[in-house]
Design a binder for these strands. Structure first.
Lengths: 210, 210, 210, 210
DNA sequence: AATGAATGAGCATTCATTCAT
DNA sequence: TATGAATGAATGCTCATTCAT
């Protein structure tokens, strides 16, 4: 009765409002610099309510991360819906990834904060979720290999490379004077990536996907 | 160059000692959580001295970032020394990058902290330095294109993709259960990357670089 | 009598349950550190109910104190039942006091908390109750004097001394490494006390009460 | 360098000022209710300075307790100076005890708070100090027994009873409507106590010490 | 009548920065 | 020049109390 209440007696709207403002605030000033009071104020609830719903700042942040991860996943898989072929799927996923973060740069900052503050040590639930996400991509790669569309690479390694490419391009892009949008840059990165894992290389002309 | 005191009257050893312990400490606990007193203690100087040499915590961190960036650059270009061919150079640079961070994971954390806390808004000096770094790679790519070794990609975009790939693979690797070292994963990523930008694709057998 | 609601419509069992858990909790962690929610949980009622029955934390504590005081009084007077002679009565009361607190150290902590937090400023009802208690002992002393059993001391002063001795021995005992139980120590204290107020001193041998 | 500094670099005046105001404040509102900021303000130093000198609130309180205990001890032993005879010494000690707390009731509250909050679990240093104090009284009792002045009681038990009597009388006195000063009440208590441990009982007339 | 969700005042503690020595 | 004592703003978290249901 006293502890955390995941079960009932919570207002989903309040939870949602807090989470939304948590995303916004963590993204704006970073995990450490975020004052929980600000989140509460922005969400229009008392500070105690934030703690009631999420236990402490760290757990709130994890809930935030998880939420963003879920949204990103939904966005990517929605983009892959109905797409045939491993390369085309990866391409769609990559562009969806860029589009997602391009549309709302807050999300990117959440991931960056997550990595910076917690170095990948997350609650069990996060780990599992991430694993599942990777597994889905591994499957795509393996199907591509089986179909002869991709050369016989190590599927898991390749997925990690692919995610690294997506994440890195995006995160790192801040260091360059931007003449490109994230999406444009990602299109290029993915293009390079895909051509490299193709089973055969036809004439470039045919391949240009732009 | 980075700091604020050109006043001479400074001991290079002290500066060096402070910087070294700043790298260590920022890497260990992050920028926000770092207590300047700890750096001072570890460096064997008074806290006031740290402020005398570096002005404030933020500037100290930037000096730290700059130092690490310089070391990484030296490491990468040393690895490219005497290497012929654009692809071979990129390959060497990529592996040097991984090796550098594999050997001393502190350095990686500095970059991560930098990105998380300052989102790429650095002092002028950093920006310039970064631009110069990119330029050197652009040159390599363009030479590769001119030699017909690489297909005619946009050089700058490609450099950014390449750096993104390196950075992302490394930073993101924490999310996967590690069966690979950073270097192994990077070898794979670079392999994929390079095959994608090759002018022509010969038989895979010859190409396997592992 | 102690609380504030005469409104009827209250369940005596609930009141009893809350009180019992209040004793337990105040004793365990002290008045200030007690979380009313814990009392409510332990008593199996809602927090609001605790407030309904007792008004606020302070009044709840006073009800607690009162309850414990009543139990102690009952215990002491039960022990004096049928005992003849002032000295024998005081002796019985002292040992009952020690036995009461020895059997349930919670009770002691309630008194200690009471003294520490409220310095003796209690509601009217408590004062009156206390006065009545003292009066009963004063009567015993005066009877003893009248009977020639006790020397003609100031009765009220003596009662206060006696209570002080009992209370002090018990509260203070924590400062000594315990080789004695509370009861043993009290036996000794009371022994000393009694021999001092006796009207005449016979041979020690006969007097040794242990 | 970073941690607590018992050694040098501290101003004794500041330490003294903080301690003095800590006594005052803890006595006034109790340990839990004390806001360290108030102590700092009253002592005319920054809050950080309080933490610099005493580490945390609890340690500050222990320092406070220790200080008061030392003062009490000095006061009592000064009063026993030059007094001959065990009974006379105990009598002097008892009256000094009462006089000390009568003169400055703050000190009493410190002891009460101590007991209430920490139930006798003190740092090693306190335990040792307390033991030493008891030992000095044990010695007095034993000497009195050896001299035939006191009957052959258990010395340690008796010391504990005596302290209990002193402490209890004082602490408990708040429950009675005061017509007596602490000192008067203690005089009576000690009187009773002493007559009880005398080796022989002469005519009461001669003995009346009032 | 009973509940427990919501609230926000309150407080311990940390740490960047200053400045007197 | 070098130092480190002093400072107080900043912030996570608790919990007594209220009140809508």
């Amino acid at each position: 009765m006293t502890g955390r209440n995941e079960t009932a007696s919570e207002s989903p709207e309040k939870r949602r409002a807090i989470l939304e403002q948590a995303i916004r605030t963590f993204a704006e000033v970073g995990f450490r610099s975020t004052d929980v009071q600000v989140i509460a104020d922005r969400a229009g609830v008392g500070k105690g309510t934030v703690y009631r719903y999420f236990g402490n700042k760290e757990e709130l942040f994890w809930a935030t991360t998880f939420e963003v991860l879920e949204r990103l996943e939904r966005h990517m898989f929605a983009a892959m819906e109905g797409i045939e072929g491993a390369r085309a799927k990866l391409r769609a996923a990559g562009l969806a990834h860029a589009g997602f973060l391009d549309a709302d740069p807050q999300y990117l900052e959440i991931f960056v904060q997550d990595r910076a503050e917690f170095r990948g040590s997350h609650p069990e639930s996060h780990q599992r979720y991430h694993e599942k996400l990777i597994a889905r991509f591994v499957e795509i790669i393996e199907q591509g290999i089986a179909d002869g569309e991709l050369r016989p690479v190590d599927a898991r390694e390749t997925v990690l490379s692919f995610w690294g490419l997506l994440y890195g391009s995006v995160v790192h892009s801040c260091y360059a004077v931007h003449n490109y949008t994230l999406t444009e840059l990602t299109r290029h990165s993915v293009d390079i990536f895909l051509k490299g894992i193709r089973a055969e290389v036809p004439q470039y002309e045919k391949e240009h996907m732009k």
